[in-house]
Nucleic acid binder design. Structure first.
Length: 105
DNA sequence: CACATGACGAGGG
DNA sequence: ACCCTCGCCATGT
C-alpha cells in the first residue's frame, strides 16, 4: 500500500461529525489533488478495517456519489442528517456551510 | 508488463 | 440542467 493511500485514510478519519468533505478535497489534503479516484477506492475497500466515517465523503457537487438505487444511498443520507447536515433540493448539501475546512485549506 | 476499473472532476456542447 | 469525453492514478488481473 502506498503512502498516499494511508494519508487518504488518515484525512478521512479526521472529518468531524456535522461536516463533509469532497473526494478531491481529501485527495488534495493527502498530497495529490488528482487522486479523487483513489479516495473512492479507499472508501470501497478500507471502511471496515479502519472504521472510517465514509458517509462524510461526498462529490464535488455536494451530492452523494452513490447511485440512488443502491441501499447505501439512503443509509448515507440518514447518517448525515442525524449529524445535523441538511439536504436541499435534489439532495444537495450546501458546501459553503457544511464542508469541512481542514488544516491546509 | 499491458490492460481494465472506479462512491471522481472539470469542461464543452 | 443534462450528457459526454477526457484526464488521472493506485489497484487488480
Amino acid at each position: 500500500m502506498q503512502q498516499f493511500t494511508l494519508d487518504i485514510i488518515q484525512q478521512i478519519s479526521r472529518i468531524p461529525a456535522g461536516k463533509v468533505a469532497t473526494y478531491g478535497q481529501i485527495a488534495a489534503m493527502a498530497g495529490n489533488h488528482r487522486g479523487a479516484r483513489q479516495v473512492s477506492r479507499v472508501l470501497h475497500t478500507c471502511t471496515q478495517k479502519y472504521q472510517l466515517p465514509w458517509h462524510r465523503v461526498i462529490g464535488a457537487a455536494g451530492k452523494i456519489s452513490i447511485s440512488k438505487d443502491q441501499p447505501g444511498y439512503q443509509k448515507q443520507k440518514k447518517k448525515l442528517q442525524s449529524e445535523g447536515i441538511e439536504f436541499g433540493l435534489g439532495d444537495t448539501i450546501d458546501l459553503s456551510i457544511f464542508q469541512w475546512q481542514g488544516q491546509a485549506q
